[in-house]
């Protein structure tokens, strides 16, 4: 009796698994068809309101984020060549840029508690790509470059000046908070040079800042969440919080 029940259970499990596999293959095929469709009919999707609503509904019913689709389709045509890219901008790549801008804002909000509102382009790119891996859709490789981000930021800034690009030791950072002083930037400059961290001694030796200035700047930066403290060694270290790009 017991044995039989077990057998039935096994058979049932096998059938369910087979159906699951089939369904996920179908979904994957459908998703890639959607990507193609979105790139072929991009213009229509943007201009025809009714068409767009239907398209969005279809995306939602299969669990595809239309924002992602737009980034991907604009990214893939842009990646074909630089000549193509400029051409693309003249037409309406706008959808893709706005979609990317939304993702950038999302990432900035998500990381704000950990980094205080200052994120390196390198980390931002990693996060934008990484986010996609976790969603499980392996075929949707977003190919975003620093240039894409710079471009979508110009779109964002037409809504007000919340997001600004900073140059620190040749590396680009995105600032989405007020109150980044020159001294703060110089601390990050030194972090960049030292592989992510500074100490009081390093600040004194490199910038000839006196103790009070060092402490004020560091304390301010800790308060704003720009630096994490490490007391694992005899000398306290202050780390810039972008562990993803380490």
């Amino acid at each position: 009796m017991n044995f039989q029940r077990d057998e039935y259970y096994q058979v049932g499990k096998n059938i369910t698994r087979r159906q699951e596999d089939q369904l996920s293959t179908q979904l994957a095929v459908f998703k890639s068809a959607l990507v193609n469709f979105a790139s072929d009919h991009g213009e229509e999707i943007i201009h025809n309101l009714e068409f767009r609503t239907k398209f969005t509904q279809m995306c939602q019913s299969v669990g595809v984020d239309p924002l992602n689709l737009q980034i991907m389709t604009s990214g893939s045509s842009g990646g074909a060549g630089s000549a193509n890219k400029s051409n693309n901008n003249n037409n309406n790549n706008g959808g893709g840029e706005i979609a990317l801008a939304v993702r950038v804002v999302e990432e900035c909000h998500k990381t704000r508690d950990a980094n205080g509102g200052l994120i390196s382009f390198k980390e931002l790119l990693l996060r934008l790509k990484g986010e996609d891996d976790t969603s499980g859709s392996s075929n949707s490789n977003i190919n975003v470059t620093e240039q894409d981000i710079t471009q979508c930021l110009t779109k964002l800034n037409s809504l007000g000046n919340g997001y600004e690009t900073l140059n620190i030791s040749g590396k680009k950072w995105l600032k989405f908070t007020n109150n980044v002083s020159n001294d703060h930037k110089r601390v990050y400059e030194l972090c960049e040079f030292m592989g992510g961290m500074v100490t009081y001694r390093l600040l004194r030796d490199n910038y000839q800042w006196d103790q009070v200035r060092c402490k004020t700047v560091i304390d301010e930066m800790i308060m704003k969440g720009f630096l994490w403290v490490d007391q694992g060694e005899s000398e306290t270290q202050f780390w810039e919080p972008s562990w993803l790009s380490v």
């Binding site: 508690d113 205080g116 800790i222 403290v229 490490d230 694992g232 562990w243």
Partner: peptide
């Protein structure tokens, strides 16, 4: 995860928001 290799992850952070995170 990568944060497990972030050096200050092992020190209690003085900033309350960061600490919570």
């Amino acid at each position: 995860p990568k944060i497990h290799s972030f050096i200050p992850f092992y020190t209690k952070q003085p900033n309350a928001t960061v600490l919570n995170n």
